[in-house]
Design a protein around this nucleic acid. Structure first.
Lengths: 337, 337
DNA sequence: GCTTCCAGTGGGAGCGCTCCCAAAGCGCAC
DNA sequence: GTGCGCTTTGGGAGCGCTCCCACTGGAAGC
């Protein structure tokens, strides 16, 4: 290209002029719209190539009132929640689906005051065509913001309280039930639970699943022993458990991280897994395979979760009315139980 | 608010009218610009409140030629590279820094053809005010795209080849050297290495650090045994290592995941860590603490990496010319060595 | 008293695109 | 030859904001 390539980007007007057509025709040609003769279409394409024209997405956004972006908003108490590899996998799935719909992904960590403030601005200003919301806690300020948002909202995992209109979730109750039933089927009778945060619906649902299974087997469910989904909290919970119930022979931990922490504690206490205490986790992320022994755990389709959230959002943006989705979980048996 | 709150968002014109001022004054008041009397400023603020006005970021972007967003682009061979918790931590850091500068974070996974195509569009269309680039491989197509990008580019980790103008990296060579020296100081003499991908600068630099330390100690460095930064590849490499060099007594793995894989293999081969084989990793992410035994590893300041990348980008966007940055690493001694 | 200056103000021209709509061109049935 | 209906075309009015600039009037300086 021997063009003097000015620093400025060429505009559609310049393309039109060069192609000897009007701006309207050039615009139509560019968007593959009808009502453009073959000759002019080609002339426009040629001009685009010669000028190295790239449409200005901002101008297009202003004219169409569509930003071309979707936001993934992760709530939580502090930003380190995002260190959970769970979100990374959600993003892999969501990103692929958004790519297909030619939407960009904006990522907002709403786990700080500053972050929440910016999310609120985004929601109120229509800075995206729609949003996906994750990791909401009870009475999360994001719930209200989402209600007032001037754009489609898809929830990833149901929030505590009434189910929103559009969400994608995994079968937390069923997964937890299956995990617990597995422990029972192994002959364990004193099966304890290390819950996730009970101010999240996932935490509650997994406890319900555990409880259902215990009652169904005619066993006494343990009261909820709450962790915060981290390795450290799992270890701490296990320490408390061993102190209070030295005869525990099975543990369902509502998250692999916590299960790994429990494993460590059990080991340090000189007991064997699974011989003395069998442990089942929840998630089936990398840590489950790295743990020693490798974790029996409830597999949840994390990338699919992200993908389906994104697809649901795309449907909403396109004016459709998709139905909520609950994805199945399934037990993956390894060495820990 | 008893306003009939029409579906449409109020515009700045309506705010101005309601406040009894011109659009210019309203604009200035909104942006805290000078040349607005106290009375009118307050009138505008009142009108904004009454109308529930929120500025339209797209219109602002078009007028100012600033999108208000920065993109983090993650390259790689396939999208699962993003499952590495490393990136999540980078994002936590970058997000905080961008929040401070009132920039939104766009996340682009360029590890698929589709993703790369969209990144190229983004780069050419000025869809962001600047970009951060990570995980580039040798001859990565993103290198060329970045060269031609019409916006500031900050590299996270140097790419293979000549160093770019602006980057933030960690001291891979120094970290690897320290890890190896630690093994040597423990009396290990047959210290092998499980490299990261050698088509990345991080992989190469960590091998160089290992090699330097071995030569410095008068020992024979092992030839590079390449993994791909995953647990599985670490395990496979360790298997090969044990077969070929049964007398190996120390291993430096260029990534915690690979170290964890090596740990598993060593254990399965009936040897003890660290008694028979001492292992040092690199990263110091969660997996290092979960591994059994907990990993001695080179800690790298991942969130700081993200934060500094974002800050550097903000500086560039503001027309400054920051200097490249190499962040220190430090050895964290745990049980595996 | 007069100029000089400057904070304060509003008009208006963009930013680069989409899209409505009126007008033009053309084939075809009558 | 006329009228109808179709595709094709381009003019122009936005989308909602910023920012330049010309203008006003009162305070300060001489």
């Amino acid at each position: 290209m021997a063009e003097a390539a000015p620093r400025r980007h060429p505009t559609l007007d310049e393309v039109a002029e060069r192609a000897g057509v009007s701006r309207s025709v050039a615009s139509r040609a560019l968007n593959n719209a009808p009502h453009v003769s073959r000759a002019k279409r080609e002339a426009v394409e040629r001009a685009v190539r010669q000028l190295g024209y790239v449409p200005n997405p901002t101008a297009r956004a202003l004219a169409t009132r569509q930003t071309g972006a979707a936001a993934l908003i992760v709530s939580g108490e502090d930003p380190s929640i995002f260190a959970d590899p769970f979100f990374a996998r959600v993003i892999v799935g969501a990103s692929a689906a958004l790519d297909e719909a030619d939407l960009h992904l904006m990522l907002c960590l709403a786990a700080s005051d500053r972050g929440r403030k910016r999310v609120e601005e985004l929601l109120r200003s229509r800075g995206a065509d729609g949003v996906m919301l994750m990791a909401l806690r009870e009475d999360d300020p994001l719930t209200r913001m989402a209600d007032e948002a001037q754009m489609p909202v898809v929830f990833g995992g149901r929030p505590v309280g009434p189910a929103p209109r559009w969400y994608v979730d995994v079968d937390n109750v069923g997964g937890a039930r299956e995990a617990t039933e597995h422990l029972v089927s192994l002959g364990r009778r004193r099966v304890a639970v290390i819950c996730g945060r009970l101010d999240t619906e996932a935490g509650r649902a997994r406890y319900r699943g555990y409880r259902d299974a215990m009652l169904g087997a005619g066993l006494d469910p343990f009261p909820p022993l709450e962790g915060d989904f981290t390795e450290r909290s799992g270890a701490a919970a296990m320490t408390a458990l061993l102190a209070e119930h030295p005869d525990v022979d099975g543990v369902f931990a509502a998250k692999d991280n916590m299960a790994a922490g429990a494993l460590r504690t059990v080991r340090e206490a000189g007991r064997r897994v699974p011989a003395d205490v069998a442990v089942v986790g929840f998630d089936d992320l990398t840590v489950a395979r790295i743990a020693d022994p490798p974790l029996t755990t409830v597999h949840q389709p994390v990338e699919a979760l992200g993908r389906e959230m994104a697809r649901m959002l795309v449907a909403l943006v396109n004016g459709q009315d998709p139905t909520p989705l609950v994805l199945p979980t399934r037990l993956t048996v390894r060495a820990s139980a």
